[in-house]
Amino acid sequence: MKRLALSIALIAFSAHSYALELTSSDISEGQLMSSKFEYKGMGCDGGNLSPQLSWSNAPKGTKSFAITAFDPDAPTGSGWWHWTVLNIPATTTSLEQGASGKLKIGHETRTDYGKPGYGGVCPPEGDGMHRYQFTIWALPEAKIDLPTDISPAVVGFTLNKIALDKAVLTATYVR
């Protein structure tokens, strides 16, 4: 019985150790983000920088990556999309801080701010703590052919439909 339990534990650990992982030198799971990642506009006065992100352990068959940043706590009834990037080559494993708008790889599409590129965190004042879910998506296609002005909800639907795997890093912010 002990051998069976040990075998199951080793299999579970082995399977977990190869799961797609997302990390950042700028943001941490469950922790408050710096104001340099806050939007500049709509009553917010931050630096509007996209955070540094790194990922590893992509599943076999990954031909590209996508990144999304989403606030499920926005008082809209449907959350708020802060960033969508498609067609990041499978050989890429990180983006530096402030990469949005300067990407030589990938394809940034429209966010809920109405334009492509990272739109920083900007919860309404007094609305409490908001969660910001940064997600790396491992995709089986080298190119997802969606226009720049596509609805971010369509991007999210497409990614959920085809992803091989995803990893989420959730940071917080409050004003």
Rank of each mutant, 00 (worst) to 15 (best):
T68F: 01
A12R: 13
F37G: 14
S94F: 10
T135W: 03
V155F: 00
C122G: 05
T93R: 10
H82V: 03
L159A: 13
G43V: 00
S50A: 01
N87K: 11
C44P: 05
W137C: 06
K36Q: 15
G79W: 09
S35I: 05
L53C: 00
E141G: 12
S17H: 11
S35G: 08
Q31H: 11
K166E: 08
K36M: 15
M1E: 11
V154Q: 11
T158N: 10
W81N: 09
N48Y: 04
A58D: 08
V121Q: 00
P59F: 05
Q97P: 01
A171I: 04
A74H: 04
L95V: 15
T170H: 00
T76L: 00
W80V: 00
S151A: 12
D145A: 08
L22H: 05
D127H: 13
E125R: 10
K115L: 03
D71G: 05
T172R: 11
L86C: 00
P123L: 00
D127I: 13
T170F: 00
T109A: 05
P59V: 09
T135L: 04
A69D: 08
T62V: 02
F65W: 10
L139S: 10
E38R: 03
K166M: 11
L164D: 04
D149M: 10
G30K: 05
I8A: 14
P124V: 11
I88L: 12
M129C: 09
D149T: 06
M129N: 11
N87R: 02
P140N: 14
F70H: 02
A163G: 05
L20N: 09
E38M: 11
R110E: 00
G117D: 00
F13Q: 10
I105F: 15
T84Q: 08
L164K: 09
S35K: 06
L169C: 08
T92K: 01
L139N: 06
P116E: 06
P75C: 01
N57K: 15
S100W: 00
G47W: 00
P72R: 11
D73F: 07
P59R: 10
A74I: 06
T23D: 05
I162V: 14
G46V: 09
S100V: 07
